[in-house]
Write a protein that binds this DNA or RNA. Structure first.
Length: 302
DNA sequence: GCGTCCAGGTCTACC
DNA sequence: GGTAGACCTGGACGC
């Protein structure tokens, strides 16, 4: 086993842990985390046949990345890994406009000063979409079970116990029956197979979503074309491609909103939408950060 | 131990 | 465009 240590320099408005633990992704393999030490781990595919394990931790104005690999890594492979991790941590995106917008609203001033706003994403859109479908209509425990099963059954192995996220080809080569029986994906199985087949065949280019010039509502419609991706899933996928116009309401955030703004009383979704409308193109991000503020700040425990 | 409900929803058919 | 019903699964809950 070879160990390589790399460093990623970070901008001033960046907070590593608030990014790593910005939503549930850190808890789904091949990500894992340790909240006591504030470390994020990830198994990454460098190229065909090369899988590595990375351990990330903030050190001042940089992130220290400790990489374990079977063979020594080439310069190109190191650069590719850094590029993947920067994309996961959203370091190639500019949040200064968002933090400026936050300063305009007294209730959100804490966002800029705490370096919040970046939401962890997977190295590929394919992984983000597959996982998002696995979060629908089930408990978080079942989401974890489905994703863990996908990774362990189809992902390339690293060091016996770890696995990378599976390729579209690997899942496409399976069957709906297998996904139902072994992955426990239930009725989502045909959606996952169809998605993997379309991506593997090249008929669907999910990765273009991150650089798309389409107007936000058009991109949203395009996401909705994927079977299993409804308003909740598309709304949250939008955040992972850098667009924050949608709230992505689900039963968990609705309950949070009721507690925070309505003393536990339920309201219609349209009422929640109306509440955040004045926050413009950043409303989805303001909303999510407000709902999860207590994750990072004991003063806001619910 | 067993039945019911519901969870970080979506799809389809029907009106 | 709006809505009812079906859909996998596993854990929590009541009995």
């Amino acid at each position: 086993m070879h160990t390589t240590v790399l460093n990623i320099l970070t901008p001033t408005n960046f907070n590593f842990w608030r990014t790593a633990y910005s939503h549930g992704w850190a808890d789904l393999p091949p990500f894992s985390y340790n909240s006591d030490t504030e470390e994020l781990s990830r198994v990454l595919t460098v190229d065909s046949g090369t899988v590595v394990s990375a351990l990330l931790k903030a050190k001042g104005k940089r992130i220290k990345v400790k990489i374990d690999s079977v063979k020594p890594l080439s310069l190109f492979q190191k650069q590719f890994l850094i590029s993947q991790l920067k994309s996961c941590l959203r370091l190639n995106e500019d949040f200064s406009d968002f933090h400026r917008a936050a300063r305009w609203h007294p209730e959100y001033k804490w966002i800029g000063t705490s370096g919040s706003g970046r939401m962890l994403r997977a190295p590929t859109v394919f992984e983000d979409v597959l996982k998002m479908i696995c979060t629908t209509n089930c408990t978080w425990a079942l989401t974890k079970l489905m994703v863990t099963n996908l990774v362990e059954h189809f992902g390339e192995e690293f060091h016996r116990t770890l696995h990378a996220f599976p390729t579209a080809e690997a899942i496409a080569a399976s069957s709906e029956k297998y996904l139902r029986k072994e992955i426990k994906a239930g009725y989502r199985s045909p959606y996952l197979i169809e998605l993997a087949e379309r991506v593997a065949s090249g008929k669907l280019d999910l990765e273009s979503w991150r650089t798309s010039d389409l107007p936000t509502d058009e991109l949203f419609k395009q996401m909705r074309q994927v079977k299993g991706v409804g308003p909740y899933a598309a709304g949250n996928l939008m955040k992972l491609v850098g667009r924050y116009d949608y709230l992505g309401l689900d039963s968990w955030v609705r309950a949070q909103y009721y507690k925070l703004h309505r003393n536990g009383r339920t309201v219609k979704d349209s009422t929640i939408e109306k509440h955040y409308e004045p926050y413009g193109k950043w409303r989805g991000l303001f909303f999510w950060l407000e709902m999860t503020r207590y994750w990072h700040d004991d003063k806001f425990k619910l």
